[in-house]
Design a protein around this nucleic acid. Structure first.
Lengths: 159, 159
DNA sequence: TACTCTGATAAGAATTATTCTTAATAAGGA
DNA sequence: TCCTTATTAAGAATAATTCTTATCAGAGTA
């Protein structure tokens, strides 16, 4: 189950945190402790955490952080393009992996898996896309039942 | 701005409603007045309505319908694969167009446009997708600023 | 047609996710 | 260090969705 780019390796996290620091300086976003920890939490996670999950992680280092700050900061980062947002239900999930990739979303357990395209399988924009507007980012999800849920079929709620 | 498959033509709507009736009979889903009207509302709309919008339409014919029924029914239909769900924010939007197509979602106004792939541009599943699970459906969104918002640039909140 | 079983619905409370308001705080430049 | 102003905490408010329970009605059967 190892993929092309892991989000969880320590070196890589540090590299991204530094990249984020540079980004903030370059765009006159104040580099607050909260922002750093929030970014680090998303970058350190392999599980596409939701705002609440990020909050729980950040809380350990900054017990006084508020959930609102987490939401606000995640939105800011998303607008800035520093992180991405996945999700089709009512719960947003965030992703700090900058490599172009897609997601497999389990309709049963809600788990989100990274899917990295092989060479030659990378998605390109449709030729007529300019008719609609200017694309800022692309979100491709494959939705279905993940293998883990299929094995433990008793838990499968739908289908 | 006319696309390959319009959702709004009367004949097509009737055809889909009938298809839906057959589907219900075949899958022992009770064919209630509410379900019919809810399906018809989604099928008649070109604008990927959210649950609330569907509710407002259905209300005109069935004033006693509840919003909960709309939510429940839309979820059922989605599970059954009769309609699709779009959306990345906190508001789900529904779609009764069975033709394979993608969406352009405006980050500014929230409008959802149908994007129909040209011949030869149709998406195929990545070769390694079976590693993750069994795909039930695919959701591809291009997110950006739509041309209408770009023209009236004063309204553009983000970017 | 009437009967019956059971899934579907209405009503409204409850829950979950997210955003807003306001006063206090702290980052970064002078 | 001081100042300016963006950012934050706290908690209220809002928005979206789901749950609970009693009632109702679809559709198969007699």
């Amino acid at each position: 189950m190892s993929h092309a780019v892991s989000v969880c390796d320590e070196k890589e996290i540090t590299r991204r945190v530094n990249e984020f620091k540079l980004y903030c300086r370059a765009h006159s976003l104040r580099l607050t402790g909260q922002r750093l920890e929030i970014f680090r939490a998303v970058a350190s996670s392999c599980s596409h955490p939701c705002a609440e999950a990020v909050y729980q992680v950040v809380r350990k280092k900054l017990p006084k952080v508020s959930l609102d700050t987490v939401y606000r900061t995640l939105s800011r980062m998303e607008e800035a393009g520093v992180i991405g947002r996945v999700g089709l239900g009512n719960k947003g999930r965030f992703d700090a992996n900058p490599a172009a990739h897609y997601h497999f979303v389990c309709l049963n357990c809600g788990e989100v898996y990274d899917v990295f395209p092989r060479e030659g399988e990378k998605l390109s924009l449709p030729g007529n896309i300019a008719e609609f507007g200017e694309v800022k980012n692309v979100n491709l999800q494959f939705r279905g039942i993940c293998n883990r849920c299929r094995q433990t079929a008793g838990d499968v709620k739908i289908i």
